[in-house]
């Protein structure tokens, strides 16, 4: 079924986009990652202009993180205070990111920057996922095999503006969470991703939060930032396509629920390892395209 997208000004196969978004939602439900880092390049590959893909993708991230957050909140696995602090940094960062996005769009260098950022982060995600699944497979069966990161004296502890976070059992400066939220917010706006893949490891290793609240708390930050990015993209770049968003939301939330449900019964670690290899492959392909001489030297800016 062909659907003409009013903002992208092009027809797409509605069924194909629905299936793809369900697949991406499924993978994100299975692995706990947002899935934006797969969906955005896929939309661009389908011929949807990069600005529209990035701007619209934020709405799908909003939708999938709502259902994830609801599940975590029921189990009281959310540090609301930390989440809101991260979100404050995230909102400022994403505002900044949307203006960078508009500037680069005008300068004609947005595709290069997006590609480079994707190469960098796909490699990082791939490495992290491969490492984690490798560790999990190796120590399978042993309870509490992965030691929790021990608090150690760090430069971060010497910062001012201390605040108590009872749910996480932390008494730290508000500056690192704000800075972390800011950085992830900038990336979220430029790359059309949620940023949970950077946020979650940073929360564990930098802020030293207990792992059981990390997923719920990062979901809160991702939800708020994605909602703000959607709003900003709609207001400033005016590139959010509501028809595309509707298909992505429906496919994404159904896929995510199925993924989360089946995730418990499937060999999660092996799946993560397979996904890590796929992610590495994608990063390698993008990098290869940037390094090899193009077949045709001239390009037209998207209108």
């Amino acid at each position: 079924m062909s659907i003409y997208l009013p903002i992208a000004e092009m027809p797409v196969s509605g069924l194909l986009v629905l299936l793809l978004s369900a697949l991406v939602g499924f993978v994100s439900g299975l692995t706990g990652l947002g899935g934006g880092f797969i969906m955005t390049p896929m939309l661009i590959f389908m011929g949807i202009p990069a600005p529209v893909a990035v701007a619209t993708q934020a709405s799908q991230i909003t939708a999938t993180s709502v259902s994830g957050l609801m599940a975590q909140a029921r189990r009281r696995m959310v540090d609301w205070r930390m989440g809101l602090l991260l979100s404050m940094g995230g909102v400022i960062g994403s505002t900044f990111g949307v203006s960078i996005f508009s500037t680069l769009l005008a300068a004609g260098q947005i595709d290069i920057l997006i590609t480079l950022l994707y190469v960098l982060f796909l490699t990082v995600i791939g490495a992290l996922m491969l490492f984690e699944s490798f560790m999990a497979i190796r120590t399978a069966g042993k309870p509490l095999a992965r030691p929790l990161p021990r608090p150690s004296p760090m430069a971060l502890d010497k910062l001012p503006f201390l605040m108590r976070f009872p749910r996480s059992g932390l008494y730290i400066s508000v500056l690192p969470p704000l800075a972390l939220g800011f950085g992830v917010g900038v990336l979220a706006a430029i790359m059309g991703v949620g940023g949970a893949f950077i946020l979650a490891p940073a929360m564990i290793y930098l802020l030293r939060m207990p792992t059981n609240v990390v997923v719920g708390t990062s979901l809160l930050q991702v939800l708020i930032v994605a909602a703000v990015v959607t709003l900003l993209q709609a207001s400033i770049t005016q590139k959010v396509d509501l028809l595309l968003a509707a298909i992505l939301i429906v496919g994404g939330v159904i896929g995510a629920q199925l993924g989360a449900r089946l995730g418990a019964r499937l060999p999660g670690e092996q799946l993560r390892a397979v996904l890590a290899v796929v992610v590495f492959g994608a990063a390698a392909k993008l990098l290869w395209d940037l390094l090899t001489p193009p077949a045709y030297l001239y390009v037209l800016d998207p209108s």
Partner: peptide, 20 residues
């Protein structure tokens, strides 16, 4: 544009909530 952004966010929230 701003109202349209709000509408998109509400649609996303409703979609996520309904599926949960």
């Amino acid at each position: 544009a701003f109202f349209y952004g709000i509408l998109t966010v509400l649609l996303a929230l409703a979609g996520g909530w309904a599926s949960a």
